[in-house]
Design a protein around this nucleic acid. Structure first.
Lengths: 236, 236
DNA sequence: TATACCATTCTTGTATACAAGTGTCAATGT
DNA sequence: ACATTGACACTTGTATACAAGAATGGTATA
């Protein structure tokens, strides 16, 4: 929950591992042992175990006792439900924001949107651009939640959506067009909030959330080993 | 995530501690040290630390390095946001269920409702009744989520709502009338789903979620030491 | 009397040795 | 040739010793 204390050994390892997992440098399904990681980071097993446990709670690692620890496969069924939750919650939150928002809040949003425009028009590498844009995209949505007085909703969501972030990182390495598309949708969403056009707002949010994924289903089949088989109907 | 393996030492400690925290046998704010707990359960510090870390991730413990570990104070601001999320999500999920539900599913719901009626009319202690009714209440709502095909939504919600469960345990020790009220609301909710009366359904859900809390604000001031001071405006 | 300071003792963080379960693979017996 | 079995290497789980930070309380000093 805490942003960051002095970077204790355990938390430093956690952040570095998480970044590697989210950027697929540690690919889904790959094995990752405590002792190997400990020697790599030149620390003992204890802080490694702490980091593993936290990542496991976030669904990014799967610890199988006496067998090994593995980077979780991407669970599309779970991501589908995360998208559903995000759709429903964001529609509600932004509808509340539209009903009750200051003119003074527009400036902060315009700043973020301007930043996104400059990113797209800059000459960054595609990978650099993707990473920077994802950061700014999160800024945009987080700012909206904060303005609506629903910071905790955003925080809760972040804790359960690491899987989602990983998949998004995977997808957005595609092209500048997608990012331009996202930027335009951001503009439209804020306009809908300003004008209090509720039905349009709901539709914009749904499209904004789902479109990037629906247009990228081919990627799933280009790396099938990264994904958890669906329709297993466990528990039966 | 996994229901339960063989109850390893670490997980056994986790479950026992969690139960004690949720039932307020370990009151909010109380200190709980690793070594004390280790001697109490006759194990070493390592599995205790594992359990502490998990409980900390759920927001039930607060680990302050080199100072101590404490049972978290109940955060009403956070609970307010949990209730908001539950209201929004449950309205959406049950609306989906109403649009697309089998007649065959009614039997399973009726069984649970009958069970609740029998619990209320039985001669159990108030505390026994409360605990049993909370279990059955969760069964009812979980069944609805499962019928709507949104099991993951329910699971996500459970992981972040330990705080909420603790507060609910605290409140429901009040009287048989409240439980009877909840039971009647359950009946009404299922009727609204059957009849597909969507507006009534949304209103029923909102009332069902918020009423118990709004009628019990006095309890907060009877045990002020259990609660986190509000309007601290941290981060500034 | 008030205050500054130091030591003791508590806490959790880290390192490491050992225990216990799992899978691999080769040797052996059929 | 095949199957079974056992040793071995590997994993994570647990126990314990030590390090480092924090708070308390007493003592010496101004």
């Amino acid at each position: 929950m805490n942003p960051k204390r002095q970077p204790g050994t355990s938390e430093a390892v956690y952040h570095r591992l998480k970044e590697q997992i989210l950027h697929l440098e540690l690919p889904p399904g790959s094995a990752i042992s405590e002792i190997d990681t400990a020697t790599r980071y030149e620390v003992s097993r204890t802080p490694i175990r702490d980091a593993f446990k936290t990542l496991s709670a976030e669904g990014l690692l799967e610890i199988r006792p006496h067998i090994g620890t593995f980077v979780s496969l991407i669970d599309l069924d779970m991501i589908s439900d995360i998208l559903y939750m995000r759709e429903v919650l964001e529609q509600a939150v932004l509808r509340d924001l539209a009903q009750n928002h200051d003119k003074s809040q527009e400036f902060r949003i315009r700043l973020i949107l301007q930043r996104q425009r400059e990113l797209i028009e800059s000459g960054l590498t595609l990978e650099e651009l993707s990473r920077a844009f994802i950061v700014s995209d999160n800024e945009f949505h987080n700012m909206l939640y904060e303005m609506a007085g629903k910071t905790n909703v955003m925080l809760f969501f972040r804790t359960i959506s690491s899987q989602y972030e990983r998949f998004r990182t995977f997808l957005n390495l595609r092209g500048r067009d997608n990012l331009m598309c996202l930027y335009n949708e951001h503009l439209a969403i804020w306009d809908a909030i300003s004008c209090q056009t509720y039905d349009a707002l709901s539709n914009l949010i749904s499209h904004h959330i789902y479109d990037g994924f629906n247009s990228s289903t081919d990627i799933v089949y280009s790396h099938p080993e990264y994904f958890k088989p669906v329709s297993q109907r466990a528990e039966f």
